[in-house]
């Protein structure tokens, strides 16, 4: 028996919205500690990892670990039948469920849906706990804007960190550009820029993945970029009181 109730159903919709362009079919894992999801994008360049802790739910029960294979596209079709202010409950009775039930509750109506599940034998990747040599925390809408603007100049974006801060740069056919974001300790947490740089990094990434993933900025006003030289970068959106949504992106290596 599994039951998980989102107090804020809109949050669940934003999570699905953020990953729907990156992953197609995913295994949703549920156990006593909460719900998790890990899936590579179709080109196997990025890995999406979601972790939602049971304490963050209005109601949560999971007597036995469950794996529920679902199509994100079909999940979205069901979620489009819910309102952004609805409470959303996920439920299944069986130990080997073939469907996942959804209840959408608002003041004046209650809806019930069932999503057919599928069995996916997807390889799960072991993501080692890593001490990153550069960790940058900045406003998520600022990061989104920089990626979108520089992404118009070149499909690869360079990221260079130093004690002074973080620099994004592009060198394309039409020309080049760079944006240096300065550290600030403003008292407004959502506008703060913090850099912890033990070792500076200089890495290059395909910016299209950032632009696809940055829909997640609706989840959090801040984004955390964790980097080490020649390692995948992690973009993390903290989901207040619940957990986090992460994107691991492999770097581009100069030939």
């Amino acid at each position: 028996m599994f039951e998980a109730k989102f107090e804020d159903g809109g949050l669940f919709k934003k999570i699905v919205e953020a990953i729907k362009e990156l992953v197609k079919n995913v295994n949703l894992e549920a156990n006593g500690t909460g719900i998790s999801l890990q899936a590579m994008d179709t080109s196997h360049v990025a890995l999406v990892a979601l972790q939602l802790n049971e304490k963050g739910f209005k109601k949560y029960r999971c007597e036995k670990s469950l794996t529920m294979g679902l199509s994100i596209e079909n999940l979205q079709k069901i979620l489009k039948c819910s309102g952004n202010d609805d409470q959303i409950t996920l439920r299944t009775q069986d130990e080997e469920p073939t469907t996942l039930s959804f209840t959408f509750e608002s003041k004046n109506r209650i809806s019930e849906f069932q999503l057919n599940l599928m069995s996916l034998d997807q390889e799960q990747l072991g993501v080692p706990d890593t001490e990153y040599s550069s960790v940058v925390r900045m406003p998520s809408n600022e990061f989104t804007k920089i990626c979108r603007e520089l992404g118009n100049i070149n499909e690869a974006i360079g990221i260079e960190t130093s004690k002074e801060g973080i620099k994004f740069y592009v060198k394309g056919d039409i020309g080049e550009g760079q944006v240096s974001v300065k550290i600030n300790d403003t008292e407004k947490p959502e506008e703060r820029v913090e850099c912890e740089v033990d070792e500076p990094v200089n890495l290059s990434f395909a910016v299209r993945y950032f632009n696809l993933f940055n829909k997640a900025s609706a989840l959090s006003s801040q984004v955390i970029l964790s980097m080490s030289q020649d390692q995948p970068l992690v973009i993390e959106y903290i989901i207040e009181e619940m957990g986090s949504l992460k994107l691991y992106l492999a770097p581009k290596i100069n030939d």
């Binding site: 590579m40 196997h44 360049v45 990025a46 890995l47 390889e123 799960q124 990747l125 072991g126 993501v127 080692p128 395909a206 390692q231 995948p232 691991y248 992106l249 492999a250 770097p251 581009k252 290596i253 100069n254 030939d255």
Partner: peptide, 12 residues
């Protein structure tokens, strides 16, 4: 050249 994510993380 674009690396694959699986080359960094072993499948568990």
């Amino acid at each position: 050249m674009q690396k694959k994510i699986a080359s960094y993380f072993k499948s568990s």
